[in-house]
Design a protein around this nucleic acid. Structure first.
Lengths: 202, 202
DNA sequence: TGTATCGGATACGTATCTGTATCCGATACA
DNA sequence: TGTATCGGATACAGATACGTATCCGATACA
């Protein structure tokens, strides 16, 4: 805790961030006024400007916090031991989205749009994605090892593919949850794909 | 042309739509005021309200128009004849994005967000996606035929996968054009993936 | 050529949002 | 317990966006 005083401050910061999460998810970033956030959090705009310089700044903080969460989730994935179908088991273990996925899908997508137009945000997003791919590549490497196979392609490239599939599927699932339950596309295809990208036995 | 009169009308409509396309891409849907659109098109708000009921309505029209374009593009894909690597050739033929892809990536993504929150838009989006998948499944079927193979999975499901990969890759490319040129991920992986999903020869 | 209708411009009132400047209660700290 | 500082509320002034109501020039049509 910084020098002067505090105790209320981190609380209101947290509450503002949480409120912003919900309101952004509901109405979008541009569609949300600072007033909306404060109202939803039970504060006035005074509190907001005392804690953040602008709506943009808050969004960056929000995104960074979520990035850590996502990375933690990925790092927490444990590869199963069973020797039946390692690929399928691994995908199944990793493919369950959290309950609040809808909210974060909306915010992350919003942030993506924001990033395409804003260099500072693009940097943050690309850095997160790079770290995510590194972790994922690591995991994939271990997966192939356990399967007793060698990957036939660069693991970072493969990580890009996996991210593309996951993100693409996520969008479809959030638009038509009934037609495509979350995780289904991944479970249906990723095991086969990963297996197909193992180097041929020699 | 409708009864009363017209000639100017469809022109200004078109110009407003074109202006909206550009401004939405630049500042986002919520970030764009109706005034912005009119100014960029060289009209006043009077012209806007005479042609559209609201910004939302205009967005729907914009999206529908683009949907047709996308479907036309897909239907125009011609499978190559050469017998070398049919899968690679097909992917290469289909993977080149149009020049204005960035603009439409932004708008479509924006529209996706809009759709997650708005049933009417979701219906439009899902209908387009369904038609897109149908066309794509057809194309894939023909592709397997030419390859002398039988698909091992439902083609509509496979179409979902392809769409996921393409959309996921598109997002990555627009965020890091240098690290991932448009179409590269597709060309690198899709041929192998499609081949791997052919039923084993019997 | 006259005239009714159409398309878009202009003008207006209102609502909302923004950022800052100031004020007051609460809390740490001596 | 006194006091300086901190956190958030309140108050204010300006800007921007919205939708409508009205007006005027242009075009179809008789």
């Amino acid at each position: 805790m910084p020098k002067g005083m505090t105790k209320r401050r981190p609380q209101t910061r947290a509450r503002l961030l949480e409120a912003a999460t919900e309101v952004f998810a509901e109405r979008g970033f541009h569609g949300t006024s600072i007033e909306d956030i404060c109202q939803h959090a039970g504060y006035t705009r005074g509190a907001f400007y005392s804690n953040f310089g602008s709506k943009d700044e808050l969004l960056l903080v929000l995104f960074d916090a979520n990035s850590e969460r996502v990375l933690d989730r990925l790092r927490a994935v444990e590869l199963p031991e069973g020797d039946t179908d390692v690929f399928a088991a691994a995908v199944a273990a990793a493919a369950t989205p959290p309950d609040d996925d809808r909210t974060w899908f909306l915010i992350t997508t919003e942030f993506t749009l924001y990033a395409v137009r804003n260099p500072r945000a693009a940097a943050a997003l690309n850095e997160r994605d790079a770290r995510l791919r590194t972790s994922l590549a690591e995991l994939l490497g271990e997966l192939y090892t356990r399967a007793g196979a060698t990957p036939a392609v660069d693991l970072e490239d493969l990580a890009r593919l996996v991210v593309a599939v996951v993100e693409g599927a996520r969008a479809q699932s959030h638009l038509e949850p009934d037609a495509l339950p979350p995780g289904r596309l991944e479970q249906q295809f990723l095991p086969t794909v990963l297996r197909a990208l193992a180097a041929p036995r020699r």
